[in-house]
Design a binder for these strands. Structure first.
Lengths: 209, 209
DNA sequence: TCAAAATGTGACTAGAAGCTCACATTCTAC
DNA sequence: GTAGAATGTGAGCTTCTAGTCACATTTTGA
């Protein structure tokens, strides 16, 4: 019997070569991000993206094999912006206090979530991730930021438990930040103080046993 | 000009009166929960739910005005199960240590997330919430569990900051638990120990200023 | 200048999925 | 027993949307 092969969209698309098409791709991605943020993944459509971008639906499929690949490009760009927002102070500088390190990290994380809150939530919660690798690379780099603070606080390097502590601390901070974002309280100074308190309490408990 | 009124699905449905129909509704909701967990919200279809339940598609629409209302019934039942999994020890019993209270709470939260991990994630992350009120009532009750532990730890009652502390602590615990769930490490004893450590460190820092 | 490559267009197709409705079956109450 | 209510059925209507393709326009390079 003839096996039914469902028609697959072509997965290889041409790369934009001329300046004109590079600009088109940028316009498409930016419009797509706006539509994705506004509608959520469930109601994110390529047709609305095209009309928002002021571009033909065909132009989107010139450069993106399908809807998901468009969302992945958005995620890639967004995660770069997130990492750029999180800078941690020099580890070897002993004059920086634990509180200052924790505050810098938390300010970075809050800033990262403030860039485009709604888009951030949609990308993380709704859009399915086809390619693990890109996401994993981001997560590894993200955890490295936490581990740097933990090692500075514990006064040692690369202990096995530091990796675990980094994941616990990042999970905790992310959890509180996400809850605050849901309630529109990302900019609250009380939240900031409480988060720094939480982080410091945990960091101190690490070196204290 | 005649204004176009887009056809709305009837929002009022009959209630199951006979035992037969009550059983049908239960079968539908249970099948829907399995389909929702397996496919995710994006690919959750009423047709698959009907065939999984061994019921006609029409029967679903006898009792649920639309797809979302079906998901809401699933959420309602699931949140009840979650709350049932979280029991906190008697607040007035002074013989229970801080560690024991924290451990009981965290074991409850982990158990709650273990009931049906995939369904839990889909319900919280993917299914849009139409009716805030039910979700809010759950969240209030959920936070009350945390607040009980915090008040026992701080040795006082209903301080204004306890509400904030409860939200911070619950956000932190949820964040770590969700991260662990994503990595399939919900049952790890290391996670449990680290979470209790985090909770205790924060609780102690509350009474210490 | 002009041919070929790159880019852009949008009407159209296929298929998926929510939901209806006319009809069949089962149960309840008198 | 039987009328009417409750329950159950599923073909198919309708809407939505991802993705195609034949064609038009612009740019490049020789």
């Amino acid at each position: 019997m003839a096996t039914r092969v469902p028609p697959q969209p072509e997965s290889v698309r041409k790369l934009p070569r001329q300046q004109r098409s590079r600009a088109t791709v940028d316009i498409i991605v930016e419009a797509a991000a706006r539509v994705l943020a506004r509608r959520g993944w469930a109601h994110f459509t390529t047709n609305e993206t095209a009309s928002t971008a002021g571009v033909s639906i065909g132009s989107i499929y010139q450069y993106f094999p399908n809807k998901l690949s468009l969302a992945e490009e958005i995620r890639k760009r967004h995660l770069d912006a997130v990492l750029a927002a999180i800078v941690v102070p020099d580890e070897s500088d002993a004059s920086i206090t634990l509180e200052q390190r924790a505050a810098a990290l938390i300010d970075g994380v809050v800033a990262a979530h403030s860039v485009d809150q709604r888009l951030h939530r949609v990308l993380l919660d709704e859009v399915p991730l086809a390619a693990r690798s890109a996401q994993d690379a981001f997560e590894a780099e993200y955890l490295r930021r936490y581990q740097a603070v933990i090692e500075a606080a514990a006064g040692r390097l690369n202990s096995e438990s530091d990796g675990i502590a980094a994941r616990v601390l990042s999970g905790a901070v992310e959890g509180v930040v996400h809850a605050a974002a849901r309630h529109g309280e990302l900019q609250s100074p009380v939240l900031r103080a409480e988060l720094i308190g939480l982080a410091c309490a945990y960091l101190r408990s690490l070196s204290g046993h």
